[in-house]
Amino acid sequence: MVITVSHLKKFYQTHQKEPGFLGSLTSLVHRKYQTVKAVDDISFDIKEGELVGFIGPNGAGKTTTLKCLSGLLYPTSGFVSVLGFTPFERKNAFLKQIALVMGQKNQLWWDLPAIETFLLNKEIYEIPDAQYQKTLDELVELLDVRALLKVQVRKLSLGERMKMELIAALIHAPKVLFLDEPTIGLDVVMQKKMRDFIASYNQLHKSTILLTSHYMEDVRQLAHRVIIIDHGKILYDGKLDNLVKKFAKYKVLSVVLDTYVTPDKFKEIGELTDYNFPKVIIRVPRSASNVAAAQLLEKFPVDDLNIEEPDIEDIIRDVFSSNLK
């Protein structure tokens, strides 16, 4: 086990402050503290080489968990072990083997070419020359930025800068990689490139990767294993396919009609979610999907029919909303 988390809890205190001068005065004397349970008793294990996706809405506790694992936060209670180390002790030997990439926190020197920051990290992480060159070449090829190495960081586009940030974070070939919302703020093309990169990196190096996201695509494309977290608790931990089977209560029939049929006629089959002639989308309970399909083919002028799994986003949304209840 590369990562072991057992009954991890992270609570922190906030206090309310009333607006205005009187509010400031009262807050000096009497403060009402509230405990925010960012992470509330979670446990999981991750093996070497796994690529795990943490999904959850904003404020679910994903980033907090990641920070606890990388040593930036001191847990309120529970046991955390990464690569055999206790993260919050922040031992150098531990830090040399992990990498944390968070969206807005950049480490590249703005006015210099990115390669200078790489060389700085080389010294900080004590990477031998040969290994540095090898890793650099490989990353540069994978991300296709050879031509940009000597360009000032301030002159690069957002996408190019993100690639350079990645290289800076990976130049010491970490065994464990924590990625916090890696595709946030990127355009569709860049998002795909980022996902491809993460997948390739995981395959090439067998490094353990933990990423957080609230984009479904990230998880769908990358994570073999998914951990759903909401309000500090784990709702599901397992393979994505199983998630669908376990939580999806319905299937989606997507139909292409030959001739026009009035919408209400579909009521007997199932719930009509979208009608844009000639396309029709109907929701039916899982168990009834075959029967419903047969009925459609029999009674309606159907040109084409597909039975699909519901969108993962919808499933997860349902999971979250049922969690709120």
């Binding site: 990388s70 040593g71 930036l72 830090l95 040399k96 944390l100 926190k105 950049n106």
Partner: peptide, 12 residues
């Protein structure tokens, strides 16, 4: 601006 984390994650 909460950028301290970048420094804390380095082995120095």
């Amino acid at each position: 601006f909460a950028q301290l984390d970048t420094f804390l994650v380095k082995p120095m």
